[in-house]
Amino acid sequence: MSLKIRLARGGSKKRPYYQIVIADARSPRDGRFLEKVGSWNPMLGKDNEKRVELNVDRVKEWLAKGAQPTDRVLRFLAEAGIATRDARNNPEKAKPGKKALERVKEKEAKAAELAAAAAEAAAE
């Protein structure tokens, strides 16, 4: 049985509240879970200490048993100092693609042509 430490959504529409639970990876997101080990209330401010609550001892036990945290839960565990998370950064993602670069070059060429035509007209 593959175990996950993940979020189970609660709360009402547009007012989310999440429980951090230990669940079988095959069970539905808000379905059956083995144990609740914490909670996350994204509606609270980031500096509020009740935003993320964890039962650190139980989380450590489940990690020792082989439970795998999801990405979001791993962030919480890294902030609490329980687990380490590799920083993910993709600097290539922000760079424009080939077609966008071609459009920029075309615009620059047109601007240069207009500037040259304007200079010729001014010279005459």
Rank of each mutant, 00 (worst) to 15 (best):
M1V: 11
L3Q: 04
K4I: 13
K4D: 09
I5A: 12
L7K: 07
A8I: 11
R9M: 03
G11T: 06
G11R: 05
R15A: 05
Y17V: 03
Y18R: 11
I20L: 10
V21F: 09
D24R: 14
D24V: 03
A25Q: 08
S27Q: 14
P28V: 06
F33H: 15
L34W: 06
S39G: 07
K46V: 04
K46D: 13
D47K: 10
E49D: 15
E53I: 01
E53Q: 13
V56F: 01
R58Y: 07
E61L: 13
E61Q: 12
A64M: 04
A64E: 14
K65S: 05
G66W: 08
G66K: 10
A67R: 08
A67T: 11
T70A: 00
D71K: 03
D71N: 04
D71H: 02
R72L: 15
V73K: 00
V73C: 05
R75C: 04
R75A: 03
R75Q: 11
G81F: 02
I82D: 03
A83C: 10
A87F: 07
A87C: 04
A87Q: 15
R88M: 05
N89F: 15
N90I: 01
N90G: 00
P91A: 10
A94F: 11
K95P: 02
K99T: 13
K99L: 12
A100V: 12
L101M: 14
L101V: 09
E102A: 11
E102W: 03
R103C: 06
R103F: 07
K105Y: 06
K107C: 06
K107L: 08
A111Q: 11
L114Q: 09
E120C: 03
A122C: 01
A123S: 10
A123W: 03
